[in-house]
């Protein structure tokens, strides 16, 4: 995955709660077997509404999505992350994320940032007032900055390090192949196999 250290861009306010992964990318788009082309499916039902915020030319080219609470609930489809990234988003900000979505994001280098609901509201208001507002998401400092606001966010050291280095989890785990083998040799004898 691509490394993420700090990112400055414009932001889109998505004033909706419970943005489930079926909205981010409807199931009909999940039939593809490739990893590309999902940007066309991003919010595809909502984008049919001309007043939907992503259709507002003022927010064209924005790279940070600022959503209401419980973003990415529902299905485990990583296609939701691919669709957001391929559309051009580098960061999603919300007061709460679905666990699987947040996990998938950090595997792909899309940064999920948790901020308190009032700070999310202020950020949404700021980019509604001026869509050209520059927003900086600084993973090194664990901080989101816009206007005169500097809001800290939490992320565990290990995930932060992995994102900043752009490291592949499988490669990291395979460094411990010996540990896996030792564990496997001690598994309970009655555990089932599929053969």
């Amino acid at each position: 995955m691509d490394a993420f250290t700090t990112h400055t861009g414009r932001a889109v306010p998505l004033r909706r709660s419970n943005v489930d992964t079926d909205q981010i990318i409807p199931a009909v788009w999940l039939k593809q077997v490739s990893r590309t082309g999902f940007e066309k499916g991003l919010f595809s039902a909502w984008r049919e509404d001309p007043s939907f915020v992503l259709n507002d030319p003022a927010y064209a080219g924005a790279t940070i999505l600022v959503s209401g609470p419980d973003f990415g609930t529902g299905s485990s489809r990583e296609h939701a992350v691919w669709a957001l990234q391929q559309y051009g988003f580098r960061v999603v900000i919300s007061s709460r994320f679905g666990d699987i979505f947040r996990n998938n994001s950090t595997k792909m280098g899309l940064l999920p940032v948790v901020l308190p609901e009032d700070v999310v509201g202020r950020l949404q208001a700021a980019v509604e007032a001026d869509p050209a507002t520059e927003v900086t998401v600084d993973l090194a400092e664990r901080q989101v900055r816009f206007g005169d606001v500097a809001a800290s966010f939490e992320i565990d050291d290990y995930t932060r390090w992995r994102l900043m280095e752009g490291l592949d989890d499988i490669g990291l785990t395979l460094r411990h192949a010996d540990d896996i083998e030792v564990y496997e040799n001690g598994r309970q004898p009655w555990l089932p196999t599929t053969v």
């Binding site: 485990s76 489809r77 990583e78 296609h79 992350v81 699987i100 996990n103 998938n104 595997k107 792909m108 989890d169 499988i170 785990t173 395979l174 192949a177 896996i180």
Partner: peptide
């Protein structure tokens, strides 16, 4: 998600 599916398949 699919990244983790790949991870489990491999490890």
């Amino acid at each position: 998600g699919t990244s983790e599916v790949e991870h489990v398949l491999a490890t």
